[in-house]
């Protein structure tokens, strides 16, 4: 399966090959990103790390911002 990933921190778009039943958590681990530091959207919706990915999903990974 193939997914498109946008990483806000690097302003970079990537296309990634992933196995079936890959979760967001697995993808983040592969990308060496701590899930506790990011908010992930899948096809325009905020999702949890347990979400299972589908072919052609579009993911965006935003840094958590907490300043005020």
């Amino acid at each position: 399966m193939r997914v498109k990933v946008f990483l806000e921190k690097e302003n970079a778009h990537k296309s990634m090959e992933i196995p079936k039943d890959h979760t967001i958590e697995s993808l983040l681990k592969r990308m060496k990103i701590n899930p506790q530091t990011v908010i992930v959207s899948r096809n325009g919706e905020v999702v949890t790390e347990q979400e299972i990915l589908d072919d052609k999903d579009e993911l965006k990974i935003f840094s958590v911002k907490l300043g005020g």
Binding site: P35, Q36, T37, I39, V46, V64, L66, G67
Partner: peptide, 15 residues
């Protein structure tokens, strides 16, 4: 719903 299980930021936040 958004900040489930997220880490607090450590140190000074650049702004």
């Amino acid at each position: 719903k958004i900040f489930r299980n997220k880490l607090p930021t450590k140190g000074k936040i650049p702004v």
